[in-house]
Design a protein around this nucleic acid. Structure first.
Lengths: 236, 236
DNA sequence: CGCCGTATTGAGCGCTCTCAACGAGGGTGG
DNA sequence: CCACCCTCGTTGAGAGCGCTCAATACGGCG
């Protein structure tokens, strides 16, 4: 028997969680940020920005879900992350002085806060609290990406899908989540681009998981039935 | 015709270069680091540290080459990076307060400088120059890892090997390198673990590359013959 | 010279991709 | 309100890539 705690601990090696908390900054800095930030509302399927474009600021996702992806010359798409509430992005490109390396679009109607690039850079320079948060978060993200590379290089579709579903279950946790089982609402196309396979293969593998009672499918939504078995299958 | 410049620029999206320069810190900080650092010499094939272990300090590679890898439960190994002269590592685990997430061992006889964990953390807190360097370097590394995930998720062995050889050609540049063609000295086993395939498949693909005059093999060393064609094959 | 680890080559199998067809569901316009 | 279309999802068949197992060749070292 595998303990719930063990699974969660192992998952956190692959799970990108919000790690930058502007609300933990000194109050005066928070107030100042307020002055330099704007609220943004975007509709489902809207592209917030595209890879290659100039990074004009930092975004904080307040509500909704977004996908971060890279499009390749051959038309293939790789989804890198699904962002949910609390996630901060855009800061890395600004700090590294690069253009956006990935595109970001809305999976649902979303609500964001935008902080202007120039002001953000100033803030990083003068706020020790913020730059420390950034250092810790970036270092941790490094670990997560390393682990992900390992999975993509060494594991097959079944294992990758199992792991992905466990990760998405965490990402989709909200007030409706019962007993830790989230409703994973993601199109098959997006899911296949996240796992790194074709939609056909994804459908087949999902079918297999259903047969083994690892998951339950309701319409387009996926619910995990057996965390333990999925975890074993992911073999991480 | 693809320009040399274009290839180099594209490669830098996948190439981890030394980005932390202690010699660019203020002189007083440099002198202080001297007091807290030790020189280390290790022989070829020695393991410097293993994944899961406590991170007791930061290392700067002065001479030689090292490999960074993760070992999986099933015995498979994924090499994440090859470090060459100037590379700094160990800092990420310390900042994120994690144990080592990968093992590091020497591909050749190596010479390193070691900085104690405790002192390094103090230095990060008080040196704006260092923490800024760390922020920039971590942000850039993020981009590189993202790009690598894309490659591993979407590309086949041929493409991955082509890209890997181009990267290694940069890594192995030294005073003996003529016309930008380095001697890539890496065992087939290591190369296969870096590309993410079996040694058998690697041998076959190398054979194919030889037939197409993309590379030249002398003993165990590999030399690139056609950067352009390799680059096209990598399709990045 | 023999041994052992590394490299190469071959054969066969299984996984994943591609192409193709069909079904389901949602949106649009008549 | 219904017919149609378009997209998305599923299922099937076949091809090709990459893995595994097995045998052989090579090379350094004792």
């Amino acid at each position: 028997m595998i303990s719930k705690g063990h699974i969660e601990k192992a998952l956190h090696r692959f799970l990108l969680l919000p790690a930058i908390h502007f609300d933990r900054l000194p109050l005066n800095e928070q107030e100042e940020i307020q002055l330099h930030s704007t609220d943004i509302f975007i509709k489902k399927n809207t592209i917030l920005f595209k890879q290659g474009k100039y990074t004009n600021g930092v975004y904080i996702l307040k509500k909704g879900k977004m996908k971060v992806y890279q499009a390749n010359y051959d038309g293939s798409i790789q989804i890198m992350f699904i962002y949910s509430q609390g996630e901060v992005f855009g800061h890395r490109s600004i700090i590294a002085e690069e253009n956006h390396r990935a595109s970001v679009s809305a999976l649902e109607d979303c609500e964001l806060t935008f902080i202007d690039r120039k002001y953000f850079l100033e803030l990083v320079k003068k706020s020790i609290s913020l730059s420390n948060q950034l250092l810790v978060s970036l270092s941790h993200e490094f670990t997560i990406l390393i682990n992900r590379i390992n999975v993509f290089a060494q594991r097959g579709i079944k294992e990758r899908l199992a792991l992905t579903l466990l990760i998405l279950n965490e990402k989709y946790k909200d007030e409706h989540t019962l007993k830790g089982i989230s409703e994973i609402k993601l199109s098959r196309t997006d899911l296949s681009n996240y796992v790194g396979t074709s939609t056909e293969n994804l459908a087949r593998t999902l079918h297999l998981f259903k047969e083994k009672n690892l998951i339950r499918v309701q319409g387009k939504s996926i619910f995990i039935e057996s965390f333990e078995d999925l975890f074993l299958l992911a073999s991480i």
